[in-house]
Amino acid sequence: MILWLIAAIVLVILVYLLWKIVQVPSISVSTDKSLYDRTETVTITGVLIDQNSNPMEGKTVSIAVTPPVGDAYSLSPVTTGVDGGFSASWEIPDDAAGGTYTVSVASLGATGSTTFTQSKWIIEELGVWSAILG
């Protein structure tokens, strides 16, 4: 009888822990603007929360910026504050390709992403079209 009781308790604990395992934290990310120029600084902010929506402090967040062409830029990892928030900045190189850039973040198995546009692409496209059209 005692052993069956223990087995039942163990089963309940097992189910609870398995439920906890499938629950991963979630991370959100955004940039301060959606349109940038070359050499401008992109400010990246976000929040890391656990499965109960509580902020997660002191966790490492990895950040990468993927340009429309070429290799991705790996930013230095940042640490979340007491409110689960994190912040990073990245200066767009003066030879950066125009187009849509993707900011990817990851921490403790949670991933998030957002995009922004480097406006030189639009200006260059307009320049090409204006040259074609005379």
Binding site: A7, V10, I13, L14, L17, L18, K20, I21
Partner: peptide, 12 residues
């Protein structure tokens, strides 16, 4: 029994 508890704990 205790291993069954320990493995999910370690996985978590």
């Amino acid at each position: 029994m205790f291993g069954v508890v320990g493995v999910p704990l370690a996985m978590y």
